[in-house]
């Protein structure tokens, strides 16, 4: 089963390797990981998508908690949250598919952020499933490169983690 967790850690030298090393050393999966400073710049917020059964998830959360640099863990399993990922896609274009590409872009509320006579670069944001869907449509048209950020998530409702 897929789980999304946010990990708030000290924004310090080497902290990413502590977290990623924990996952590889203990044989936990990382499907995606994204990191950036939080509202409080001394804290980094990581969003990790992982998979495993309940016992594995329990161990992952406990093991992450055990790291000295971990300040807080938010496990979104069973919670209501907003999930967004961004993708940048470079597509080879010719006269015959230009319009089609722009149409797809439009439907998914993407943006063309770079154009050359031979390519479009498109930005799409949404839940990972939406990006998968765009990609399914674009793939046959000749995708040259894809960059995905991995999802970031935030809980729904008024409650917030200020330092996060």
């Amino acid at each position: 089963m897929r789980h999304t967790i946010s990990v708030l850690v000290e924004n310090e030298f080497g902290v990413l390797s502590r977290v990623s090393g924990l996952f590889s050393g203990r044989g936990f999966n990382i499907e995606s990981l994204s990191v950036a400073p939080a509202l409080d710049p001394t804290i980094s917020r990581m969003t990790i998508v992982t998979s495993g059964d309940d016992n594995v998830l329990e161990q992952i959360v406990k093991q992450l908690n055990k790291l000295i640099d971990t300040i807080k863990i938010i496990d979104f399993t069973g919670e209501d949250f907003v999930e967004r990922e961004m993708a940048l896609v470079k597509i080879a274009c010719e006269d015959r598919n230009r319009a089609e590409i722009l149409r797809i872009c439009d439907i998914f509320r993407g943006k063309v952020v770079d154009v050359t006579p031979k390519s479009y670069t498109m930005e799409v944001t949404g839940a990972p499933a939406k990006i998968d869907a765009v990609m399914n449509l674009l793939q046959p048209l000749g995708v040259k490169e894809l960059v995905r950020t991995g999802p970031v998530v935030i809980g729904r409702g008024p409650k917030g983690w200020k330092s996060a």
Binding site: F13, G14, S17, R18, G21, G25, I68
Partner: peptide
């Protein structure tokens, strides 16, 4: 730091 990370409770590089 890299070598001892998985065999220590914590480690520090003093800069």
């Amino acid at each position: 730091m890299g070598i001892t990370r998985p065999v220590t409770k914590h480690n520090y590089l003093v800069r």
